[in-house]
Nucleic acid binder design. Structure first.
Lengths: 316, 316
DNA sequence: CCAGATGATGAGCAATAGCTCAGGAGCTTG
DNA sequence: CAAGCTCCTGAGCTATTGCTCATCATCTGG
C-alpha cells in the first residue's frame, strides 16, 4: 500500500503544517498531538513546505514596489505590472517572481468561463507552473509557444504545458517540434502542417501569454540549454541580438531579427495581439537590456520582475 | 508624520515577511538587508504576521477538517475535537472516526500511570476498541457506563469493555445489569447494590469517557438493538427526546428528560464531571441534531466526527 | 534467502527565533 | 524647557527549530 501510506503521510504533513503555520503551535506540541517524535514533526512541517501543501501570500502592496510597478506601467503602457521586493542575497532568484506568476495563473485559471493560457520558456515560468494551485477546469486550454524537442531529438525540455494541464485538467497543446529546424524552408513547411497550425491557432486566441525573457550573451539560456550552438549564438549577437523570447532574438529596439536562427525557429513569434496580455517574467542585472528592449518594442505588454531590475530598467 | 512612519513600518514588515516566508531567509540575513538589528527584524516578521500582511493557504482537504475542528472547539468550548475527512462513498461509515477514537485510546492507554477509561455505546466506540493496539497495562481500569444485558436476559450486547481489557490486560468493570429495569423503584434499588455502586464509583473517577451519540428517531439504535420497544421510543420522542447517550434521552437543549425510559435506565448518566474528558463519537446527517444538543447541553466536552457532520453542526 | 539499497527514526547538537528587560530617543504637556 | 510619557532599541537569555549521524526496519534484486 505504497500509495496509501504516501497519502496518509501527506495528510499528516498537511495537518502538521496547519497546526504549525495556522494554529501557531510549536513542533513539540504538534509531535504530541500527532503521536510522533519531535524530529518527525519537524520533518512533516518541512515536507508540507517542500510539497507546497501550504503557500504564502503577501497581501500588502509594498509601497516602493508599487511605485516602481506604477512607473513601469505608465512608461511602457503596460496592462499588467508587478514588482516584488529585491532579494539582495540572491538577485537571480526566481522565487519571488515565480510566486507572483503563479498567483496570476491562479487568478486567470480560477475563471469559470474557458480561458486559453499560452506558456513560453524560462525558469520563472517553469517555477510558476509548479506553484499553481490545483483546480479543476477541464474547459480551459493550455498551449505551448515553443517547440519541446531539443537539438538532439529528445523531448527533455521541461514540460510546462503538461504540468499545468495536470494541475487543472485543462486540454493542452504542446508543440511537438524541434526548437530549430535545419533550414528556413523546412521550418516553413513544418509550421504549416495540420497539428502545428492548430496549436498556432489556439495560441493566437490566448487570453494570457506568460513568457520568460532571455538575454543574448555568453550565458544565454538558449545556448546553456543546448538549443543553439555557440556559433549560432555569436552570429545572432553580431546581428545585434540583445534578448530573446521563446527563442526569437530581437535587437535593442525590440525588433525581431530576420536572420540566423530566427529563420529556422518553430516557436510562435512574440508579436502581441493587442487583446492578449503577454507577460514577461524575468529578473537580474544581465537581463535589464533585454527586458527594456522587449518593453520598447512592445514584444510584451506586461511585466513581472523584482525591485532591482525594475529600478535598473527605469534608470536606463 | 505618524501616518507616514506607520506606513513605512508596515512596508518594512511586509518586506521582512516576504523575505522570511517567501524567499526563505533567516531573520539575521533580513536584519542585514534592511539595516536593522536582528531583534528588530524579528519584530517586523511578527508584526507582519500580527497585521495579517501575509496569509497562509493550505491547499489540502485536511485543512478544512482542521479548521472545522478548531471552530467546533471554540464554539462549544471543547477540550478535544477531531474532524476526519468526509467519506463521500460511505457517509455513515464509522471507519474514519473509529480510527481516530482508537488513536485517542492508544494515546491514553500508553500512559504508565494508571488511568481509568469509561466506555459507552455506539458502533464507533465498538469499532474503535477493535483497532486499539495491544499493550500491557495491568494497572489501568476499563469501566462500562452502560448495562450489558438486553431485554431478553442475554448478554449479547457487544462487550466493548471486555475486549479493551483483553488488549491491555487492564482490570475491567462491566455493568452486569439489564439496560432497562421494569420500574423506577427497581432501578433505584439495583443501582445501590454493592457491585453496581462500585462500578459507578470507578466510572465517576474516569479520566476519559468515550461515548456514542444516538439520534431518537424511527431508526434509533436503542430500538434497533432491542433495548427499548417501539412504544417506549415513541413516548420519549413525544417528550421531546432528540438524542441519547448511553441510553439517556435528552431534548434539543441537551437536558436529560425526567420521564419514560430515563426513569428505568441503569446506565450512568452523561453528566460531565469537569475534570473528565467526555468524548462523543458520531457521524451522519441523522445525528446532527442529537450531537448539537449534546454539545449545547455540555453532555460531552469533546467530539470526534467527520467533515460533513461538523459542517452541518456549525451551520445550524 | 541473503546482501545491499533505501528510507524512516530518534538522539543530540548547533543554529535560529522569541522574549524580557533596561536604557534611551522623541513627543507631549505643563 | 524640563518632567513625564510612550515607544523603540539592542543585549542577552531561553525556547524552538533544523540538521547530522548512527541505527533500524523494509524493500529489491541476485
Amino acid at each position: 500500500m505504497a500509495a496509501e501510506n504516501e497519502k496518509s503521510r501527506l495528510d499528516d504533513a498537511a495537518r502538521a503544517g496547519w497546526l504549525y503555520f495556522i494554529a501557531g503551535h510549536t513542533q513539540d506540541e504538534i509531535a504530541k498531538m500527532l503521536q510522533v517524535s519531535r524530529a518527525s514533526a519537524q520533518r512533516l512541517v518541512s515536507l508540507c513546505l517542500a510539497e507546497r501543501l501550504i503557500t504564502f501570500r503577501l497581501e500588502h502592496p509594498i509601497a516602493e514596489c508599487m511605485e516602481l510597478a506604477a512607473r513601469l506601467k505608465e512608461r511602457f503602457q503596460l496592462s499588467h505590472c508587478e514588482v516584488v521586493p529585491a532579494d539582495l542575497a540572491a538577485p537571480q532568484s526566481t522565487a519571488g517572481i515565480a510566486e507572483r506568476c503563479a498567483n496570476l495563473l491562479d487568478a486567470t485559471l480560477r475563471s469559470e468561463t474557458p480561458v486559453i493560457v499560452a506558456l513560453g520558456t524560462g525558469r520563472a515560468v517553469r517555477a510558476a507552473v509548479e506553484r499553481v494551485t490545483p483546480i479543476d477546469r477541464p474547459n480551459h486550454q493550455i498551449v505551448s509557444l515553443v517547440g519541446n524537442i531539443s537539438a538532439d531529438g529528445s523531448a527533455s525540455f521541461y514540460d510546462t504545458v503538461g504540468r499545468l494541464a495536470d494541475r487543472t485538467g485543462a486540454r493542452h497543446y504542446p508543440m511537438p517540434l524541434p526548437f530549430l529546424m535545419s533550414s528556413e524552408d523546412e521550418r516553413n513547411k513544418m509550421v504549416r502542417i495540420e497539428p502545428i497550425a492548430k496549436v498556432k491557432a489556439v495560441a493566437a486566441k490566448a487570453d494570457l501569454r506568460l513568457v520568460g525573457i532571455g538575454q543574448m550573451d555568453q550565458k544565454a539560456q538558449v545556448h546553456v540549454d543546448g538549443f543553439v550552438t555557440r556559433d549560432e549564438l555569436f552570429e545572432m549577437m553580431r546581428q545585434g541580438a540583445i534578448g530573446e523570447i521563446t527563442g526569437w532574438a530581437y535587437d535593442s529596439k525590440g525588433r525581431l531579427l530576420k536572420a540566423g536562427t530566427n529563420k529556422r525557429l518553430t516557436s510562435i513569434p512574440p508579436e502581441v495581439p493587442a487583446r492578449t496580455t503577454t507577460i514577461g517574467a524575468a529578473v537580474g542585472a544581465a537581463k535589464v537590456s533585454a527586458i527594456a528592449a522587449a518593453l520598447n518594442g512592445r514584444l510584451i505588454n506586461g511585466l513581472i520582475t523584482d525591485e532591482a531590475t525594475a529600478r535598473a530598467i527605469l534608470e536606463r
